[in-house]
Write a protein that binds this DNA or RNA. Structure first.
Lengths: 250, 250
DNA sequence: TTCTACGGACGAACAGCGTTCGTGTCAAGT
DNA sequence: ACTTGACACGAACGCTGTTCGTCCGTAGAA
């Protein structure tokens, strides 16, 4: 049916057995940035579990094998994804007089950015971030502490501990978001149901075996995630403060 | 060859096409406890990633479907596994005079038990433990804090934060163990290699863009996991102490 | 201009995962 | 002796990360 010579780019209707990629071709040239972009879109839309090599590839109109030319494995993709997100964190200029507030500001900022991107907080818990933006955060947080007069060794370890705290709390928070999303309920509905279950659980305990727990069930249940995050941060900062006052001797 | 009537349980050598389960039958009756036992064995031997429904079933000489009669899904199995492990934690009797030390003792105890069982610490990070042994820990830790004069609301939140800290640090630690195990190297070899990489990374940074990081690279790298865990614990306890001293007003 | 290399793209496959369905079997209750 | 119901479980579904070998389009060499 089709004549042979029409020039190489003429609109030949159908030599279909050799036409390999008609639907997905003439795309963008598939770079690492593009892959991370796509992964970020999937993350925000459907959560970290949806960020699979296959899913990202599908979103780009190709197969999973194509990604491995630009990203050595999934772990690297997640590192790149985390660092992309970390770029959204804005940081203050160190001010010696306000170091306590600034430590909290940085912590809140990181927490907020992580929480804004589904359960991305699971990633830094499974590795030590070494991307350029992670370095930027490290540098600033360390700078704030040093400016505040925290001894260098204390400040260095404190950076590590504060990171661990922020990441783990953000991860814990993201679990609830994930479960709420999976349940299909409204956030308020879900939270009410969850709190109700916990309340029932605590108050139904035998008071003789768990006296403190039953007696203080209201305190154990009071406060939302934000309150508890703030409280833990306050604990850490107060602890650090004790090293500044007595900086001369331990 | 085989005669027909020998009684139903006689030793018939081979009607092989209908003999369904000759290798794996006449086993233990496959209870929930037995499943958790087996999962624990796999966990200790090969890590949490090896604890799959298929693997546990295989270890019991059966298929994965058989487990679902005793355990509703993998999440429940992991909860049971965690609570089994939590039973190994031994707890002190609250002593008002030693509350700071006791908080640390409990934290260390939990940390140690979690670390003794591969990367089981990943489990409590993904859920709120509600098993009987988790309750036992809650009750005791809360009791220690209250005995020490920590205000109830502070104590209640502190339990939550201390848990989060212990779990997340134990998890972070288990990552290194897992990677070391996967690398096939000796622990010392692996650690040396890892520290060397980090050292090289820090010292190769541009000092003008990351002055604090480069200047304090030794402090950032000093201390092993145990030192850092202890330091974070000290921060938390010092923070709590500040609430005890000024218990009257905030 | 023609040929040759080379690197990116990618279809297919491998081994594993959690979970469900339908069937099979055995023991206890009627 | 027969029925009932709980447990056991083979097979399958749809998913995962990763690798192999092959294809193609282009850039450089002849």
């Amino acid at each position: 049916m089709a004549t042979v010579d029409q020039g190489p780019d003429a609109e030949i209707p159908a030599p279909p057995w050799k036409r390999r990629r008609p639907p997905a071709k003439a795309r963008q040239p598939l770079s690492q940035d593009l892959i991370v972009d796509t992964a970020l879109r999937v993350l925000d839309a459907e959560g970290l579990d949806a960020v699979s090599m296959r899913r990202v590839a599908q979103e780009l109109g190709t197969g999973p094998a194509s990604l491995y030319a630009h990203v050595s494995n999934k772990e690297e993709l997640l590192e790149l994804l985390l660092d992309r997100v970390s770029g959204e964190v804005s940081l203050p200029e160190p001010d010696p007089a306000r170091w306590r507030e600034q430590v909290k500001e940085v912590a809140h900022e990181i927490h907020q950015v992580l929480s804004a991107h589904a359960d991305i907080a699971r990633v830094p818990l499974g590795m030590i971030p070494t991307g350029p933006n992670a370095l930027r955060l490290n540098e600033r947080l360390l700078g704030v502490l040093l400016a505040g007069g925290v001894p260098p060794q204390i400040a260095a370890w404190a950076v590590d501990r504060i990171y661990l705290y922020v990441n783990s709390d953000a991860y814990e928070g993201s679990i609830h978001v994930t479960k709420q999303r999976a349940s299909g309920l409204e956030p308020a509905e879900y939270m009410a149901g969850f709190l109700g279950q916990v309340r029932e659980f605590f108050t139904s305990l035998p008071a003789d075996r768990f006296p403190a727990t039953v007696r203080h069930a209201p305190e154990l249940m009071s406060g939302d995630g934000e309150d508890r995050f703030e409280f833990g941060l306050e604990l850490l900062v107060r602890g650090l403060e004790s090293y500044v006052r007595g900086a001369g001797k331990d």
